[in-house]
Each structure stands twice: as C-alpha cells, then as structure tokens.
C-alpha cells in the first residue's frame, strides 16, 4: 500500500480526495496547512510515496516550500502540485524544482479527480522504477566491490 499525503486548505477537496484515493487503495493522510504538512513530512516513520499539494495556501510559495521539504526528506518522493486559476506559472516553477507534474483543478469538462488518480498512479510508477533502478545500481556496485 502506497502512502499519499494530501495538502489542501479546502476541506471539501481534502475529504473528497481522501475518499477517492482510499478507494484506489492508497493510505491517505490529509492536512490543511503548510506548517502541519511540513511537520508531517518531517516526522513520518517512512517517507510518503506521493505528496499532493495545493499550490497556494497561506503563502504564494506554500507549494514550493512543501516540495523542498519533501525532497530533502526523500529524494524520490513524487510531488504533484494542484493549482487553481492563474497559478500555472508557480506550478511550472515547481516542476523545475523537481515536481512530478501539476494538475489544474478547474479544467472544464474534465473529471479532475480521475485525472489526479491517474497522475498518482503514474507518480507511483515513476517512484517504483526510480527506486528499482537505484536498487539495481546498488546491487551492481556491490557486485563490483565485493565480487
């Protein structure tokens, strides 16, 4: 079971995402604020596999702060940034800093929740393949060093 952290200051969005992602088989934690989120990221026993965060909460760069905290906890945790109208620029900035992708919350005619589930799956896939690659590299190195 993968660990997903959902960060959004909109209570409805949190609860809807939680139920949906739980149905998809993920272990979901939610929080509404940047500080609580940073705390959770730092203290969790094992790192989250995927973090879904709103771009703008108390501060315009809340998303970016969370991204940095996540990466410093586990380089391979994937971050998906959610943006409402007008924040694509910030989302792109997050991508530059290593976010997996961003999802616009208000795409007309698109079931964004489906899209998010898809992105979460993709992100998990990416994380798996990256960690696999790392593992293989380590095995290879061990082989060279010890064998």
């Amino acid at each position: 079971m993968s660990k997903v952290l959902v960060i959004d200051d909109e209570e409805d969005a949190r609860s809807a995402l939680q139920r949906r992602l739980q149905r998809e088989g993920h272990e979901v934690t939610t929080t509404g604020g940047e500080h609580e989120a940073l705390d959770l990221i730092k203290r969790s026993d094992t790192p989250y596999d995927v973090v879904l965060t709103d771009m703008l909460m108390e501060h315009p760069d809340s998303g970016l702060n969370i991204l940095k905290a996540v990466v410093s906890r586990d380089l391979f945790t994937e971050v998906i940034v959610l943006t409402a109208y007008g924040n694509v620029a910030n989302a792109v900035e997050c991508m530059k800093h290593g976010a997996f992708d961003y999802v616009e919350k208000n795409l007309p005619g698109v079931d964004v929740y489906d899209l998010i589930c898809l992105k979460v799956d993709q992100a998990l896939e990416q994380r798996r393949s990256t960690t696999d690659t790392i593992r293989k590299l380590e095995q290879f190195r061990n082989k060279i060093e010890h064998g």
């Binding site: 409805d12 809807a16 409402a84 919350k105 079931d111």
Partner: peptide
C-alpha cells in the same frame, strides 16, 4: 476555483 474543485470532489 478552489471551492468548486472541492464541490466537484463531493459530487464525484
């Protein structure tokens, strides 16, 4: 947009 995103989730 944020609020509507939440409503959409509930409708889903």
């Amino acid at each position: 947009g944020n609020a509507i995103f939440g409503i959409k989730g509930q409708i889903n």
